[in-house]
Structure formats: C-alpha cells, structure tokens
Design a protein around this nucleic acid. Structure first.
Ligand code: SF4
Ligand code: SF4
Lengths: 134, 134
DNA sequence: TCTAAAGTATACTAGATGGGTAAACAATAG
DNA sequence: CTATTGTTTACCCATCTAGTATACTTTAGA
C-alpha cells in the first residue's frame, strides 16, 4: 500500500526542480546532494520521468534536467505512475483475469475497491507542485 | 500501492461469513472451496483476523469460523490492516526516521502524502460488509 | 477413553520485487 | 579532442510474496 523508495526520490527531485528559476538546468549531482539521493539510483530513475513527459534532459557539458511543464501541471499522480506504473488497489482492477474466482465484474469487493481507488487517484491528482513554491 | 493476495482472500472470507445466517459456524474447508482460496493459505491468514477481533474460531469437530461483530461494524480498513498492518502511503508516515533527508515534519511532500493517506483511510473505513448483504 | 475432525504454530521454499551498484556507451560544449 | 554530462544494460543481495509441509492442540461424540 506504500509508494516505493524510487517514487519518493522522484517526488523529491521534481519538487527540487520546481523550486529552481524557470528554465534553469540542474545537473544530477546537485539534485543528488541536495535531496540526499544516491546519484546512480537517481540517474536510473530520471528516464522514467522523461518518458512520462515530466522533465527534459540535456547531455554533455552543462547538461542536466529541467521540468518539461509548469509545476502546477505536474500532479503527484503523474509522478507516482511514471515511476511505479498505474495505481491499482488490487490487481483485478488492472486485469480481471487476476481473480482466481472469476467473478470480477460482479464482485462487490471489486466494486468497492474500484470506488476507493477512484477517490485515491483523484486525491493524488489534486496535489501538484505549484502549491509548494513560495 | 496494491493490497496483497492474502488481503484479497481475507476480504472474500469475511464477506462469505457475513452472508451466512448470523451465528453460524463455517469450517475453513467450505470457505476455501466457495471462495477459491488454497486451504492451507487460508488457514494461515485467519489467525490475523482473529487477533484483530474480526472473527472468532472454534476448534475440534464441528469447529470453524464466525464473525465476531455485526457485518456493518467491520470495515475494509479493519480487514486490510489486520492482514497487512497499518496503511501508510510512505514509510516516513509511520516513522520519521525513515527519511534519508531528515526533513520529515516540515517536508511538503510528507504533508501532502499525509493528507492523501487520511482521505484514503477514510474511504476504506467508509465501506463495510453490511452493504453487501441482500 | 479413543479417535477423527477441526484449527494453530512454526518452518520451509521458489520466485518476484526492492533498492541499489557497475560498466560501457552516447552526446555535447568548448 | 576531450572532459563532462546523461543513458542503457546488466548484475547483485536482501526482503517480501504466495504458498506448502509438518507437527501439534482442542474438542465432539462413538
Ligand atoms: S474476489 Fe473480487 S476483489 Fe478479489 S480478485 Fe476477485 S474480483 Fe477482485
Ligand atoms: S522526503 Fe518527505 S516524503 Fe520523502 S521520506 Fe522524507 S519526509 Fe517523507
């Protein structure tokens, strides 16, 4: 039920970038030091944020990362799903075939969990990174 | 971010018991067959529901399980936490010491996650097993 | 009282996931 | 050209997941 370490690091990294002057490129080393994230692990996580369209990267001398959108347009849900894949309270909510009982569409547990999941995703979507900038 | 298989089985088992005539003792074998749960795995899960005060058990001939409370007094949150322990969106929400950055109390990510978590728990608490009985 | 039928406790396992590290590579500013 | 930056792929070990196996305890009833 918890986000993993990589996701927490990703949230820290995005928040850090959101606080930089708009358009400023920050290298991985700096994010790593400021946010206390093992550099090699951070470097492995960043590409998933890039694929999700949350950050942009530049290689070579003077390279680094910048947000690809305004902080207000990046939600917690975006970051979580970029790193962990779709948020699902139970696997049958992604694929009915998961259920050993095969009652998925009519299962009342399934329906209740789907309801809770929708609310959870809405809550995660309700938090963005603009709310954290002074 | 998902409940595990044991928790899904526990929800099925509690729902099954909730649908039995009140006070009727059901043996593990029957729950296992009806809900398609490996019997030995079910037998391992049940004690956690007992410790949480959700079901009662009887041993020996004619033994089995009964709900310890009315279905309306058992929430999804109760069952989930009985099997998996406290619901936490991030480990720092259980223990500040988890954070490598040590900014926990003032961390805005932490605060946002705490907010989402509170809503999630409220939603899980909002579903009980009375709503599923005809 | 003996026994078969129930649940309990503990230990074990194969495979997947988590949280990284290492090494080779690719792009780019100067 | 070269030093600097990110990318890709492969690897690693510890923990968790989803069970199974074995031995044990309780209890109704013949
Ligand atoms: S029993 Fe219901 S909730 Fe559980 S896996 Fe099957 S459909 Fe999903
Ligand atoms: S950075 Fe914030 S959210 Fe992440 S572990 Fe630390 S306190 Fe928790």
């Amino acid at each position: 039920m918890t986000i993993n370490q990589a996701t927490d690091y990703a949230l820290r990294a995005v928040l850090y970038l959101a606080r930089q002057p708009q358009g400023e490129v920050t290298e991985a080393q700096v994010i790593s030091e400021q946010e206390v994230i093992p550099i090699r692990f951070l470097l492995k996580i960043m590409p998933s944020l890039i694929k999700a369209g949350i950050v942009k990267s530049f290689r070579g001398v003077g390279g680094g990362y910048v947000l690809a959108k305004a902080p207000g347009e990046i939600s917690f849900l975006d970051v979580v799903e970029a790193v962990e894949g779709p948020v699902a309270l139970n696997r049958c909510l992604i694929d009915y075939a998961f259920c050993s009982k095969k009652g998925a569409p009519n299962c009342q547990i399934h329906q209740a969990l789907a309801d809770v999941q929708a609310k959870l995703k809405a809550e995660l979507q309700g938090h963005n990174f603009a709310e954290f900038i002074n």
